[in-house]
Amino acid sequence: MPVTVVRLNLVDPDATPRSLSERYRAALEMAAFADERGISTLQTEEHHGSPDNWLPAPLPFAGTLLGATRRITVTLSALIAPLYDPLRLAEDLAVLDLASGGRLITVAGIGYRPEEYAAQDKDWKRRGVLQDEALETLLAAWTGEPFDYRGRTVRITPRPYTRPHPPLLVGGSSQAAARRAARLGLPFFPSAHLPELEAYYHARRAEYGTEGWCLMPPAATPLLHLSEDPDRAWARYGTHLLYEARRYASWQQGTVRSAVRSRAEDVTALRREGVYRIVTPEECVAYAAEGGEMASLVLHPLCGGMPVEEGWRSLRLFAERVLPRLKD
């Protein structure tokens, strides 16, 4: 069966505190619904200082998602690890791992926005050093044994539930990220379909003598919204998809590589491009069949400030008219 994902980043450029609170509560209800219906994963992410209320605090939000569910995994993709105090991050992730029975997956990224580092009083030029320290500290802390940290001996408790440590992947689109994952013996999650980077990762693993694997995104990873009438949905709600596409495009300059990268300037171009897709249930099933067991269906029910009721329509269509056919 294909991997099925519900993405939640809580973006709403027109939100008030009250409406944003309602959106958060709706996201928790959607999470519980996805869990009950057998969807594989909830995915959330991290950005700071965005004027559209993009989720800045994935750890507490992941905790609420895990508390609202019983089976589904929650993936942080990605957590910007250099922005955190490494010891506190080790504690927080250990507690979430214990409370959820190992259902939290963390993709540790380095980020690509210097302004996020400036806002957190972190040195953008030292981001690689900070990422190394964060990952090395997590792995040492989760053993439960004393270890050296910045010239002193520390010990972090409690030990996590998952052994040898909570699920942790290194994300990125650079050779430096691939080398880092290989050196530490951690799985590597490229931020786009980059087969040459996967080969580089495995070559470096062989040099370091470490274990590991690569979770390569498919060549196409569209964000899906379901509707019985896609033409009508594009006309009414396409601006929400375009909003997120344009926001991402404004951040992803230069060498940044991403599985979700749009160059569309208007709704018509966005629809033609295919990065964001509004599909019927039948079209969704056909898309899954094309991808087979390796297919990944990513629903984005609250994309770009999408009205909550429309997000529910999409999610229910998927659960009632797509999931049963995928299971069959």
Rank of each mutant, 00 (worst) to 15 (best):
P2L: 07
T4Q: 03
N9Q: 10
N9R: 01
N9A: 03
D14M: 03
A15E: 02
A15V: 03
T16A: 02
T16C: 04
S19R: 07
S21M: 12
R23W: 01
R25H: 14
E29M: 09
F33E: 07
D35V: 11
R37C: 05
G38W: 09
S40R: 02
T44F: 04
E45L: 13
E46G: 06
E46A: 09
P51Q: 12
D52Y: 14
L55M: 14
L55N: 12
A57I: 09
P60A: 14
A62G: 12
L65K: 04
A68N: 10
L76A: 10
L76V: 14
S77Y: 09
A78Y: 14
P82S: 12
L83M: 13
L89P: 02
A90L: 00
D92S: 13
V95T: 05
S100V: 02
I105D: 04
R113N: 04
P114R: 03
Y117M: 04
A119F: 08
Q120E: 08
Q120D: 09
D123G: 08
W124F: 14
G128L: 05
E133V: 11
E136M: 10
E136D: 13
T137L: 13
L138E: 12
L139G: 08
P146Q: 11
P146T: 12
D148V: 11
G151W: 10
R152P: 06
T157P: 04
Y161N: 09
R163V: 13
R163M: 11
V170N: 01
S173P: 00
A176D: 06
A176E: 03
A177F: 00
R183T: 00
G185S: 01
L186G: 00
P190I: 01
S191M: 00
L194P: 00
P195G: 03
E196D: 14
L197T: 06
E198A: 15
A199S: 06
A203M: 07
G212C: 11
A220Q: 15
A220H: 05
L224I: 14
S227H: 12
S227F: 03
S227C: 13
D229C: 13
P230W: 14
D231C: 05
W234R: 09
L241N: 08
L242R: 06
L242M: 11
A245Q: 14
A249Q: 15
S250R: 13
V256E: 09
A259W: 08
A264G: 07
R272W: 08
P281K: 07
E282A: 15
A289E: 15
L299R: 04
P301S: 11
L302I: 08
L302E: 00
C303H: 01
V308K: 08
W312V: 04
R316N: 06
R316Y: 06
L323H: 00
